[in-house]
């Protein structure tokens, strides 16, 4: 079995190259941890000011904040916003509670809203009253970590598999082993299949470690099923691998593989859901439809945040599988450049 021979060879090679395995598995862990440290630190303690609020409300707010609510007027509060030393201002306007958020920092926003909501719900006679919320800066659409944490898993799986897979296949060419291989009766599809299976094994391990780490160590919000998430990350990794081997046909050295990163990887990061796309120009939104990471990240997000099942996500998965298949077939054709047969 020639495919089997290629698979075994790749496993042996990678096992000897401990650093590459480390890149594949631990580099994503390190980077995700860094992001987590930055975005998911200790709970934020908001600074809230108030004017003319009823005593019971002031009391529960103080209990909730574990410190005094500062008294100031609305104009004083706005000045404080500009100096960045106040997070929210609360008062009563037309018999309805009114909250003005500083708004530029999503972490602060959600911290304030949490305090205020708890405060209102603990006032039994005020249960049905919803405060009017306004933003001094920004808007309530920003909630960075909710969106990014899950997408980052997809992104880093994609990124590191792409780099390692691309360079490995390129080396096959630069060190002359591809030419040697093509002088044997091996078929082109056997080479590509062997590559995907051999590396695929390592990407399964990679996906498993990253997902386990994020869910159980970093405690990322995870509403869905662990194994279903694993299926999606693996499918994403295989797509990245197929794309990497395909593109490596158009690179002459390692540096040129790196040059694909700003062209192929970074745009995917920007347009795949880390940032909100709805505000973008329509042609940019269309662009994201041609990026595999869009579908992978979406599926990961749906599983992790909304707790959906693979069955609900069949469209994402089908498209992702289609991408992988397309890259696989194009790969076999790209090898024609080196041997037509």
């Amino acid at each position: 079995m020639r495919v089997g021979a290629v698979v075994i060879r790749i496993i042996r090679q990678l096992l000897r190259d401990k650093r590459s395995i480390a890149l594949l598995i631990f580099a994503p862990l390190l980077v995700i941890t860094l992001v987590w440290l930055v975005l998911d630190g200790d709970p934020y303690e908001p600074k809230i000011a108030a004017e003319n609020i009823p005593a019971p409300l002031e009391q529960v707010l103080q209990n909730e904040l574990e410190k005094d609510v500062v008294q100031m007027s609305e104009s004083e509060a706005k000045e404080a916003f500009q100096k960045e030393d106040l997070d929210a201002f609360i008062t009563i306007k037309n018999h309805v509670p009114y909250v003005l958020l500083e708004g530029s920092d999503p972490t602060a926003n959600s911290a304030v809203m949490k305090v205020i909501q708890t405060a209102f719900s603990s006032l039994s006679d005020q249960k049905n009253i919803q405060p009017d919320v306004e933003y001094y800066y920004g808007s309530d659409k920003i909630n960075l970590f909710d969106q990014t944490g899950s997408v980052l898993i997809g992104f880093f799986v994609f990124f590191f598999v792409f780099v390692l897979g691309g360079i490995s296949f390129l080396r096959e060419r630069t060190q002359g082993t591809l030419e040697k291989l093509l002088s044997t009766p091996i078929k082109r599809w056997e080479i590509v299949t062997g590559y995907l299976l051999g590396f695929g094994l390592f990407t399964i391990i990679q996906s498993f470690v990253i997902v386990t780490y994020c869910v159980y160590v970093l405690d990322i919000w995870m509403a869905g099923d662990f194994w279903q998430l694993l299926v999606v990350t693996f499918l994403l990794a295989i797509t990245a691998l197929a794309l990497a081997t395909l593109l490596s046909a158009f690179a002459n050295n390692e540096l040129q593989i790196m040059q694909f990163i700003p062209i192929v990887i970074i745009p995917q990061a920007f347009f795949s859901g880390i940032f909100n796309l709805e505000t973008l120009a329509e042609w940019l939104q269309v662009l994201s439809k041609f990026m595999p990471l869009t579908y992978g990240a979406d599926a990961i997000q749906e599983i992790m945040i909304k707790g959906k099942d693979l069955v609900d996500l069949w469209q994402d998965l089908l498209i992702l599988f289609g991408f992988a298949l397309l890259f696989y077939v194009l790969n076999i054709f790209a090898l024609k450049k080196h041997r037509r047969l």
Binding site: R12, Q13, D17, Q175, G176, T177, K180, S183
Partner: peptide, 13 residues
């Protein structure tokens, strides 16, 4: 049997 100009060998193996 073909032996190319460059040593087509897998360095890690």
């Amino acid at each position: 049997g073909y032996m190319a100009q460059s040593d087509a060998l897998y360095q890690e193996l």
